[in-house]
Write a protein that binds this DNA or RNA. Structure first.
Lengths: 73, 73
DNA sequence: ACGACTATCTATAAACC
DNA sequence: TGGTTTATAGATAGTCG
C-alpha cells in the first residue's frame, strides 16, 4: 500500500517505525470513526506507542471512564 | 474505495449496513493487528454492532479483563 | 524529525451467483 | 442471506524539501 510492498513484521529502523506509526494510527482512527458512523456501531480504540504514549478514540458517550478504577466501559 | 464513492453517513438500508459492517469490522481489526506488529504498539479495540454484538481485539496480554467489574484495562 | 507528494498497494462497494 | 469477483476509491511506503 504505497511505493513498495511491505511484510508485516516489526520495523527495524526506529525512525521509520515512528513515521509509520503516526501514519497508520491516524488511518486506523479514521476507519474506526467511519465504521461507527456508517454502521451505527459503537467503537472504542486504545493505542499505546512503544514509547508509552496513549492515543484513543471512542465513538459515543456509551464508553466512559468511570471514577474509582479508571477502567473503560 | 470500491466500485462507487460513498459518503460517510449512516447507511439507510439495513441489509447493506450489515454487509458493510462485517467487511469493515474485519478490515479494521486487521489494520489494528498490523499497527501493533509493525510499530511495536499495544492496541485494544472494542466494537459493538448496532444489534449489541461484541467484537474485540487486543494486541497483547497487557490488556486484560479483570474480575469484579468486567472492565478492560 | 515533519510535512507534502505520488506511485502503488490494499480495502472494499457494487455486482454477481 | 452468505460467498466470490472485480473495478475503483482510499490508504500509505518511499521520496524529496
Amino acid at each position: 500500500m504505497g511505493r513498495g510492498k511491505i511484510v508485516i513484521e516489526r520495523i527495524a529502523n526506529s525512525t521509520s517505525r515512528q513515521v509509520t506509526f503516526a501514519k497508520r494510527r491516524k488511518g486506523l482512527i479514521k476507519k474506526a470513526k467511519e465504521l461507527a458512523i456508517l454502521c451505527d456501531a459503537q467503537v472504542g480504540l486504545v493505542i499505546f506507542s512503544s514509547t508509552g504514549k496513549l492515543y484513543e478514540y471512542a465513538s459515543t458517550s456509551g464508553f466512559k471512564r468511570h471514577s474509582g478504577c479508571g477502567c473503560v466501559r
